[in-house]
Each structure stands twice: as structure tokens, then as C-alpha cells.
């Protein structure tokens, strides 16, 4: 596509994101620039460094397994693009 580093077609598939040909050109070129900048991180030796997923050291937060009030069925459906019989309607999945 725009360069060797990025396979835009593959990425749009992974992201489930349809882009126009123009968008693919522009975003491809911009990603290339941005990733060149990101190469800066390769200057650092991180071989003995643990990754930080988030800044607060909390591990496996759970709550008691009790039934609690949840969003009422009708409220959960209130923004549905298409619904019937209390269900979301989607295109056919199984042939």
C-alpha cells in the first residue's frame, strides 16, 4: 500500500473499520510518520523492566457473588438500532 511497514488492508480488517481509498492513503502516511517517531523507544534498554498495565497496584478486585439490581431490560434496549420481542435484531450469522 503506502509503505512496507504497514499493511493497511489487514489493519482495517482487524479493526473492523471500513476506510475509503483516500482515507487509507492519508492515514497510512500519517501512521508511518507517527511510527517513525515511536522508534525512539528502541533507544532504551528495557530487558529487565516489568511492564506497567496501570499505575495503581490493585490485583484481582472481586465482589461477593450476590445478585444485585441491574439495568432493566427495556432500558438496555432503549438505544437499539433495531429490536423486536425484547431482542436486538442483527443480520443473519449462520448460513
Amino acid at each position: 500500500m503506502t509503505n512496507e511497514r504497514i499493511d493497511i488492508q489487514h489493519l482495517t480488517h482487524l479493526a473492523r473499520l471500513s476506510l475509503t481509498e483516500d482515507e487509507k492513503q492519508v492515514i497510512g502516511a500519517q501512521l508511518d510518520d507517527i511510527l517513525k517517531y515511536m522508534d525512539k523507544l528502541k533507544e532504551l534498554d528495557v530487558s529487565n523492566i516489568e511492564p506497567t498495565a496501570h499505575a495503581v497496584p490493585l490485583i484481582n478486585v472481586t465482589r461477593p457473588d450476590q445478585v444485585e439490581r441491574s439495568l432493566p431490560h427495556q432500558d438496555a434496549l432503549s438505544n437499539a438500532p433495531l429490536q423486536a420481542d425484547g431482542l436486538f435484531i442483527v443480520p443473519r450469522i449462520i448460513e
Binding site: L41, V46, I49, E50
Partner: peptide
Amino acid sequence: RAQKVRTL
């Protein structure tokens, strides 16, 4: 790698 630099 970014997560590791985040640690630093």
C-alpha cells in the same frame, strides 16, 4: 515496550 517505558 511502551508499557515497560511507562514503568521507567
